[in-house]
Design a protein around this nucleic acid. Structure first.
Length: 469
RNA sequence: GCUCUCAUCGUCUAGCGGCCUAGGACAUCACCUUCUCAAGGUGGGGACAGGGGUUCGAAUCCCCUUGAGAGCACCA
């Protein structure tokens, strides 16, 4: 049974776009293999804990359609899915590790460690624990009786080769001498990531650990732990890290990184996921546009590249535009209404939106573009008088428009075309004047169609209003 | 600094020893279409980091150099 997971920590505003990428791959791999996709919240750092982050992460995941099979809210066979609720478990295993000789208690103060690190840095040495407590065989009972704070450290063996198998990189060999005696259990009784991740992945029967490349270097520590517990290893697979345009790790200074930002900006979840799927992977038939169903079908974890790709917002926009054009009008209407209601606090008239969609569908790159093009349908435009100061023929336009009996695109177009010809004005200039009078700006959906939808009365009003000014 | 992982157009990538005078997509430029802006169509420029091998033959395999990224916390 394939069981995958993402393990976000609630230390930010929301789900990081990089985490969304990892989630996509985990989700897709699970679905492809008819397995389960799990979300476990790693909230063991209470210093950086952000209130509400967990809910936001779970919500964002759902907004993108990557619904977990098991998570802290809906539970599952391995509850709880929140590490802060599993503390006794980690403590039990940590002490067990000490008993078995794979770990030891350490009472070094943060001050001592900091000083040590400084000295090492000054000597240009690698900052790491010096093993002060490693062979002291400190007794837990003793420490607890005397109320001396302690941590549990991993007793990394000397001169040992540790082999990590990565699904896309193959075999990677590490020398144990390069690995620090990692703290497993902090003095506050909380585990560090390394302890908790191994215990939970094992207990939750995670078959494939698919996570970002930043974890690759600490994987030997995890392997050591699996060996100490005598647990079978999961399959490890380290995904490339998304980069900024300057190739550094994707960060909020240089790019919007919160997944929900893209939704607020008017990107479609399908498009964002489609774009993310293209990061480090390509469709066997070189297709650029495909949905999740197809992705699950054709993708293979092994085919993912290891180079960190640069996140390109411009291509994302293009793809989003493609997705908007691909969406049926009726569905697009729902998306637009929902978007403006949820993110812009605007209740748009569904019937009007429905009529306008064919005019703007191929012009929109993001849902937010709808308002850019169509605001004048909903509100009286503010017209910059400077834009039409040289148009004394507005009166003629008004007169011609008023004589149109059957207010259709065709009749409007014909009437205006004839008028422009009669007046001897270049059609480009003529229609631009009309456009500004009706729409209030130089850019608009097709004019005649827009005027038909807007209605004769409103169009006449708008022309007249400009005349007065 | 040390450890690990990598290296094809500006960007995302195809390529897994001959099909490569290196293909596609985004972006860019030109043209066509056109009442604006788009969309669409046609075409152009643009890459195998460098150097050694191996081989009849190398973008593809090996080595070195250079470059890039990640990790080196009582953070995840």
């Amino acid at each position: 049974m394939v069981r995958t997971r993402i393990a976000p920590s609630p230390t930010g505003k929301d789900l990081h776009i990089g985490n969304l990428y990892t989630a996509l791959i985990n989700w897709a791999f699970a679905k492809k293999n008819k397995g389960k996709f799990i979300v476990r919240i790693e909230d063991t750092d209470r210093q950086r804990l952000v209130l509400g982050a967990e809910q936001q992460i779970l919500k964002t995941l759902k907004d993108f359609g990557l619904e977990p099979d098991e998570d802290p809210e809906k539970g599952g066979p391995f509850s709880p899915y929140r590490q802060s609720e599993r503390l006794n478990l980690y403590q039990k295993y940590a002490h067990q590790l000490v008993e078995k000789g794979f770990a030891y208690y350490c009472t070094c103060s943060k001050e001592r460690l900091e000083k040590l690190r400084k000295e090492q840095q000054e000597k240009k040495q690698i900052p790491r624990y010096d093993g002060h407590c490693r062979n002291l065989n400190l007794s837990r009972v003793d420490l607890e009786k005397k109320k001396i704070p302690y941590v549990v450290r991993l007793k990394v063996p000397k001169d040992k080769k540790i082999t990590v198998y990565d699904l896309i990189r193959g075999e990677i060999v590490f020398n144990s001498n390069d690995i620090d005696d990692q703290i497993l259990l902090k003095s506050d009784g909380f585990p560090t990531y390394h302890l908790a991740v191994v215990i939970d992945d094992h207990l939750m029967q995670i078959s494939h650990v698919i996570r970002a490349e930043e974890w690759l270097s600490s994987t030997p520590k995890h392997v050591l732990l699996y060996q100490a517990f005598n647990w079978p290893l999961p399959v490890f697979c380290h995904l490339p890290i998304l980069r900024n345009p300057d190739r550094s790790k994707l960060s909020k200074r240089k790019n919007p990184v919160w997944a929900s930002w893209y939704l607020k900006e008017g990107f479609l979840p399908e498009a964002v996921l489609n774009y993310l799927a293209l990061m480090g992977w390509s469709h066997p038939k070189q297709k650029e546009i495909f949905d999740l169903k197809e992705f699950i079908n054709v993708f293979d974890l092994k085919d993912i590249q290891v180079v960190g790709p640069a996140f390109d917002p411009v291509k994302l926009e293009w793809l989003n535009g493609e997705w908007i054009r691909k969406t049926e009008d009726s569905k697009l209407k729902e998306k637009i209404l929902k978007y403006y209601k949820n993110y812009q606090n605007k209740k748009l008239d569904p019937k009007l939106v429905e009529k306008i969609i064919p005019l703007v569908k191929e012009r929109m790159k993001k849902l937010s573009d709808f308002w850019f093009y169509c605001q004048f349908f909903f509100e009286e435009p503010k017209v910059d008088a400077n834009l039409i100061k040289n148009a004394p023929y507005l009166k003629d336009i008004y007169r011609s428009l008023s004589t149109i009996k059957d207010w259709t695109t065709q009749n409007i177009g014909q009437s205006m075309q004839e008028l422009a010809k009669k007046l001897g004005i270049k059609t480009g200039d003529f229609f631009m004047t009309l456009r500004i009078a009706i729409c209030g700006k130089k850019i608009s959906p097709p004019l005649n169609e827009s005027m038909e939808i807007l209605g004769k009365e409103k169009c006449l009003e708008r022309v007249k209003r400009i005349m007065k000014d």
